[in-house]
Design a protein around this nucleic acid. Sequence first.
DNA 1: TCAATTAGTCAGAAATTCTTGACTACCCGC
DNA 2: GCGGGTAGTCAAGAATTTCTGACTAATTGA
Lengths: 101, 101
Amino acid sequence: MENTEEGQGQCPAETLLKQLAGKWKPQIFRIALAGPVRFNALLRQLDGSSKQAIASALKEMEEQQLIEKQVIKLKPLHIEYILSERGRSLIPIFRQLEHLA
Amino acid sequence: MENTEEGQGQCPAETLLKQLAGKWKPQIFRIALAGPVRFNALLRQLDGSSKQAIASALKEMEEQQLIEKQVIKLKPLHIEYILSERGRSLIPIFRQLEHLA
DNA sequence: TCAATTAGTCAGAAATTCTTGACTACCCGC
DNA sequence: GCGGGTAGTCAAGAATTTCTGACTAATTGA
């Protein structure tokens, strides 16, 4: 069944939990805390991950404005992902989640 | 493949996110904030849910000590689910998740 | 006794998510 | 041109999660 942008409007926390949770998103977020990340670097760091899963996680996180994509016009053409302003605003709650776990 | 208690030890936030996120857990948590809940009441409130999904969400949340099960020995034998101490300790972060969404 | 409500469990199908491997496209060095 | 690194996309199958419907079992009221 197609879930055509059908929102879970009753529960606001659910929205944010969906954006942060998932198989790879928490780790991507944690790594991005330390600075810009690149696609293949993530793939190497996240053991057992796949291009597809990383690409789709990054895409969703970009759509939800957690991260931003930056094209670095260098010799081999790099693409960096960094936390957006909204992403940075979630750092405190992410830290709390880490401490309360 | 069996995921035999293989932990995502690198990312502590992931642990908590997994416990709170999911299709029904955020809503169950939110409803439980207001007071004791019962199985069939949840089923009626959570539109589109199924016994199986609610039962398994409650079971997981109980294992993770977010909620507690209480048998009320009354005429038709009720079972109430209430937030445990750990569950109550997560209320502030849940509220923050709601406000930041 | 029959139907209804309580709280589930179980098996099978459907939906979603993830992994694997092949492939594209650009740039660089040899 | 060939191999290797950059960043992906696509299709197919596997794994996981969820829904549906049938069923259990105890209690209650008619």
